[in-house]
Write a protein that binds this DNA or RNA. Structure first.
Lengths: 154, 154
DNA sequence: GCAGTATAGTTAGACGACGAACCAATGTCA
DNA sequence: TGACATTGGTTCGTCGTCTAACTATACTGC
């Protein structure tokens, strides 16, 4: 009996951890010591949208609201973002980049680019596409709620 | 430039989390409330080897030694394993299954089997092989070079 | 208007994991 | 033989994350 396929889940866990470690190192090297991948997800939405509510940030980072509170607390303490009460809905908090946060945009873009380059290194374009498709499938296989939502963009 | 081909890292993180949640649920359903995937890695080595040192368990579970100490503490508190001082090397601790731990073997095998079935569901055998190969590649891409530990040149 | 419910966000407590520092036993070698 | 380095494990403090419970504001139907 040859070694059968079946290591995907274990590999996925290890890739996740290795990529996170790599990211933390790059962020630190770029002068963002203590910034962690989830902070990156927060910032990434702000870079593309300008402002966002805690709720939107949580959804984009795939983190819970309490976690998002803590993440934004830290970014605020680092002076990278600021909170602002929404005028339209007094319950909502709008988070926005400070100039200091905005200044990180290029470093972030560079790290993102290098992350992908490193991840897909050694794979042909076709292999990369097949990988993405297979991973989407795996995720769907483990996602409890079948949202039955069609992919609009693929 | 067509979009896409670049979500692998994000997907990997989400698959990892989703699979962990699924596993925790299955373990709980099998009467192992509070047992977590890393505990499963510990037990899995014991099922196949009979006994192991803390060091070996840590390596197999891809966890640090302090973490492994805590993991084994809990399994011991649950009565699933016991520690034993090694006769050959008084520094080493041998961990072994208790009868109660041994009794979990079939439930564990079932969960493992269903984990893989679920993960690879919807993929052909060729696709599954390609996925495994691509994931091995990704992991290698992020694994700090263990080979040349001398001066590195880029 | 107001009661009941839903939504935005925070606080509190728990847990898994890690790095640093530590102790104890073993190995090395002059 | 004895000093020093190495290895096996644990303790301590911290971090990121989660769930549950809480506050405050908004919405809805009568």
């Amino acid at each position: 009996m040859q070694r059968k396929h079946g290591s995907a889940i274990s590999l996925v866990g290890r890739i996740h951890e290795a990529a996170d470690r790599w990211l933390v190192g790059e962020l630190k090297a770029a002068g963002m010591e203590g910034v962690v991948p989830s902070h990156g997800d927060i910032l990434s939405l702000l870079f593309s949208r300008g402002e966002a509510t805690m709720h939107e940030l949580a959804a984009h980072a795939h983190r819970t609201k309490p976690t998002t509170t803590i993440l934004v607390d830290k970014l605020e303490a680092m002076g990278l973002v600021r909170r602002e009460r929404s005028g339209e809905d007094a319950r909502a908090t709008l988070v926005r980049l400070t100039p200091k946060g905005e200044a990180l945009r290029p470093a972030f873009a560079s790290i993102s680019r290098r992350l992908l380059a490193r991840a897909y290194a050694g794979l042909s374009s076709a292999e990369a596409d097949a990988l993405d498709a297979a991973l989407e499938r795996l995720l769907a296989n483990f996602t409890p709620k079948p949202t039955t939502r069609k992919h609009k963009e693929k």
